[in-house]
């Protein structure tokens, strides 16, 4: 502990950044496992153990990061206050993605499995798109190129609308409930995950008051 003082190393904020990147990777891991159980028939019990372990890690990281952000403000003063507020919102979004992955996995408790379903390819394609967005999110946080961020936000918004369209489609579907309801719920979670990833990336470029909103605060992007 004391040697930490004399050690040369990254700034504490760099360490916080690295921990945030790890949280995103963990969230992706949970998402991949949960969707593998629903879409690819992976053993749900085995997936649950790993998802819960990962979720526990995400929750611990969130708490640790909150502590470290308080220490940062106490030691460094208010010069990074925008960053600190942005990070507190950002880590909550990542933690929610971890919870949403668990919610997806919970569908298997009700016997939901889309293995062999006629519309499986569409689900798999969307899952791959979302999974790749996690990696892209981590990358954009470390190197927030404005054009790439704008492109990401556009695609994430399109995905969000696509998922929302799917939810509506299944709500009005003539298919039986055991067919339409799990699909609607799955798309609902994916829509939330896409919105949360979009929110995470937004923190890299937007002033703190506009995080979670688009059009300079006019449109709410997470709670719709």
């Amino acid at each position: 502990m004391i040697l930490e003082f004399f050690r040369r190393g990254d700034s504490a904020m760099d360490q916080i950044d690295a921990r945030v990147a790890t949280m995103i990777n963990d969230a992706r891991h949970s998402f991949d496992l949960a969707t593998a159980a629903v879409l690819s028939g992976a053993d749900a019990a085995q997936m649950r153990e790993e998802v819960e372990k990962t979720d526990h890690r995400i929750n611990e990281a969130e708490q640790q990061l909150r502590q470290e952000l308080v220490v940062h403000v106490a030691v460094q003063g208010s010069s990074d206050i925008g960053t600190v507020l942005g990070l507190t919102l950002l880590i909550k979004k990542i933690e929610r993605i971890g919870d949403q992955a668990k919610n997806i996995l919970d569908l298997t408790d009700e016997g939901v499995s889309l293995v062999g379903a006629p519309d499986l390819d569409g689900f798999l394609a969307d899952r791959t798109t979302i999974s790749d967005m996690f990696t892209e999110t981590a990358s954009l946080l470390t190197d927030p190129d404005e054009e790439k961020v704008a492109d990401f936000r556009r695609r994430a918004d399109d995905l969000r609308h696509h998922c929302e369209g799917k939810v509506r489609e299944f709500m009005h579907s003539d298919e039986p409930g055991h067919y339409a309801v799990p699909r609607a719920i799955l798309y609902r979670y994916w829509k939330r995950i896409a919105a949360n990833l979009m929110g995470v990336v937004t923190t890299a470029v937007e002033p703190v008051q506009y995080i979670d909103y688009t059009d300079h605060g006019a449109t709410d992007i997470t709670d719709d």
Binding site: D17, I81, T83, G86, L90, L141, P144, T203, A204, V208
Partner: peptide, 12 residues
């Protein structure tokens, strides 16, 4: 690495 409002991190 630069997360969240990178402009606020660049100080003289």
């Amino acid at each position: 690495m630069t997360i969240a409002n990178p402009k606020s991190r660049t100080r003289l």
